Amino acid sequence: MSKPRKVEEPQAPYAAKKPAKVAAQPPAGPRFADLEKVRANNAKLIRVHSKVLQKLAQ
């Protein structure tokens, strides 16, 4: 059952979307983070969100 349409409304097929470009596939397998980068990111998060973390701890 099709949707009723107005007489003035022309029936036209939808234009097909252009295919997306395929990105380069990353290497398969688990990714491992550098421990120093993880520690630096954690320290930054604690500095930036210290007030929020203190409120959550209470």
Rank of each mutant, 00 (worst) to 15 (best):
P27Y: 00
L53N: 06
K18N: 13
E36Q: 12
M1V: 11
A28R: 06
S50E: 07
K6N: 07
A16Q: 08
P26F: 00
A23L: 05
K21S: 00
E36K: 14
A12T: 12
A33D: 12
F32L: 13
P10E: 05
A43L: 10
A43C: 01
G29N: 03
K51S: 09
K51V: 04
L35D: 07
A57V: 06
D34Q: 07
S50N: 13
E8H: 02
M1H: 10
A15F: 03
N42H: 12
L53V: 06
K21W: 00
A33V: 08
K21Y: 00
A57E: 13
P26T: 09
Q11L: 15
E9C: 09
K37N: 08
A24Y: 00
P26W: 00
A15D: 11
G29C: 02
Q11M: 15
Q54D: 12
A12V: 15
S50R: 14
A40K: 11
K37A: 15
N42P: 01
D34I: 04
A23W: 02
S50A: 15
P27I: 01
N42M: 13
P27D: 08
K55N: 08
L53Q: 05
N42V: 15
K17I: 01
R5L: 03
F32Q: 13
F32P: 02
K51H: 05
G29Q: 01
R31A: 15
P27A: 11
P26L: 02
L53C: 05
R39P: 01
K3I: 11
E9D: 15
P30V: 01
Q58C: 10
A57H: 10
A33E: 12
K17D: 05
A20L: 13
A28V: 04
K6V: 02
N42E: 14
H49C: 14
F32G: 07
P19S: 07
L35W: 10
K17V: 02
M1G: 10
A43I: 06
V22H: 00
I46H: 10
E8K: 02
L45Y: 13
K37V: 11
R47S: 06
A24L: 05
Q54N: 14
L45A: 12
P10A: 05
P4S: 07
L56R: 15
L35C: 07
S2D: 04
P4T: 04
D34W: 04
